[in-house]
Design a protein around this nucleic acid. Structure first.
Length: 424
DNA sequence: TCTGGGGTCCTAGGACCC
DNA sequence: TCTGGGGTCCTAGGACCC
């Protein structure tokens, strides 16, 4: 018989804000927000900001005054810094469990299966302490017999940091009943706005009511996804730990512009840059792609004529050679571009990914040549050593006037020699 | 003036085949 | 005059996640 699994979910507290705090100890216990690209929305908030009533995803311009009034420290997002600190957190975590799934930049599931003789709550407190000591990042940990229940437990821990000391264990059945009875369905992992609405229409408002429902009944309006969540709430594990990182299914590079863009030439530059970024990711994972999609769109929040469209094409053979894909992307862009609109965003999606070693020849026996692959490798090496964009294709442009805003970005303390912290 | 980006999974419906 | 049924594959779109 299969052993009853036990999952722990480790989640970093206000991760982006905590990263900024690591190098700004003066901001400890002070309110901080981190903004999305283009300094558009508030994407991370410390507890101090949450208690001011500033919601997540709120457009920055709407809360600017409030932020100023309460002396909140504001940062543009610095993904290089967050990615580096995330790696350090994950490395520390990996030493505490035989198996781990890195679920996102700030979360990981650990397997505690078979560790019944441990006091898992105390063990988790030790994990928190070690991560904090090694990286400066505070975390909370939820424990449960399924991933969904571990997620619930994590939320409880986060909401009651003082009482729980950042750790909450939902393996006990009686405690589980008590918690689920006051836990709203919309707070369950995997239940979004639409699903919550449907559940409410069926008079299901708490996690306990969902747990008690028949999964087949739930499946009728929430598909197999909803049925799985129902079972997981009932302690039946349906979602396994995903330990081996499968190859990506698609790679996307897209971004909003810092301002409206009308001309085809401007869009071309931006698309060329997105192809460059996407191809770099492709080669980094030793993949090639057989399909490319280009999309463009106007600003849906603006009261101007709206247009969005995309076009894609299959390639004769898989490739990861940037200039080849830029040429194809330009053909696609010509197909979707319409004069007269104010564009706000565009992007490139690469599909049909496969290992570079499994490359197939096209009908005429052609594929990326060794010379082409070596050329791209050399380019990547130079850009990696001297900094992104040291050498780039002319199609990517020089001025990049359409670039996004990031006016309050912190230094790359841990990844750039020139920005390392100095001590007086 | 100013509203993110990068992913995954699931389903319905069309194309195609026998 | 009568005009099937079942399977697979692909894609677009929706929903959700962080």
């Amino acid at each position: 018989m299969k052993q009853q699994p036990i999952f722990a979910l480790v989640d970093c507290n206000s991760f982006y804000c905590s990263c900024e705090r690591v190098f700004r100890p003066d901001l400890l216990n002070k309110p901080i927000v981190v903004l999305s690209n283009n300094d558009g929305c508030v994407v991370a908030r410390t507890d101090e900001v949450k208690s001011l009533g500033i919601p997540s995803w709120e457009p920055y311009f709407k809360v600017k005054d409030q932020i100023k009034k309460h002396n909140v420290a504001v940062f543009s997002s610095n993904y290089t810094l967050y990615g580096d600190l995330s790696g350090r957190v994950m490395k520390t975590l990996s030493e505490f469990a035989p198996e781990m799934e890195v679920y996102s930049i700030d979360e990981a599931f650990l397997s505690f299966t078979g560790m019944n003789n441990y006091n898992l709550t105390e063990y988790s407190k030790k994990i928190r302490k070690t991560v904090l000591q090694n990286t400066g990042i505070p975390t909370c940990i939820g424990i449960g017999p399924t991933k969904v229940l571990a997620k619930v437990a994590n939320k409880v821990a986060k909401k009651n940091k003082i009482q729980t000391e950042g750790v909450f264990n939902l393996c006990d059945v009686e405690l589980r009943e008590k918690v689920l009875k006051t836990f709203p369905v919309e707070d369950i992992w995997g239940i979004g706005k639409q699903s919550a609405k449907k559940l409410h229409e069926h008079k299901i408002k708490t996690a306990w009511q969902l747990k008690m429902a028949d999964p087949n009944y739930i499946q009728r309006f929430l598909t197999v996804v909803g049925a799985r969540i129902t079972k997981e709430l009932d302690g039946v594990s349906c979602l396994d730990l995903q330990t081996d990182i499968e190859d990506r299914k698609q790679i996307v590079s897209s971004r909003s512009f810092g301002r409206q863009v009308k001309d085809l030439s401007e869009l071309q530059e931006s698309i060329a840059n997105h192809v460059t970024t996407a191809c770099e990711k492709l080669r980094k994972q030793d993949l090639k792609c057989k399909n490319i999609t280009v999309f463009i769109q106007t600003n849906p929040f603006k009261n101007t004529p709206q247009y969005h469209n995309s076009a894609s094409m299959d390639l004769l053979s898989g490739t990861s050679v940037t200039p080849k894909l830029i040429a194809q992307a330009f053909l696609l862009l010509n197909r979707v571009y319409q004069k007269g609109y104010e564009y706000k965003k565009c992007g490139v999606i690469l599909n049909g990914l496969h290992k570079a070693t499994l490359q197939q020849m096209d009908f005429f026996g052609r594929h990326d040549s060794v010379a082409e692959d070596e050329f791209m490798k050399t380019l990547d090496a130079i850009n990696s050593f001297h900094g992104k964009g040291t050498i780039k294709f002319a199609a990517c442009g020089i001025d990049q006037f359409w670039r996004m805003l990031a006016e309050m970005k912190s230094p790359c303390y841990t990844t750039r020699w020139s920005e390392i912290l100095g001590v007086k």
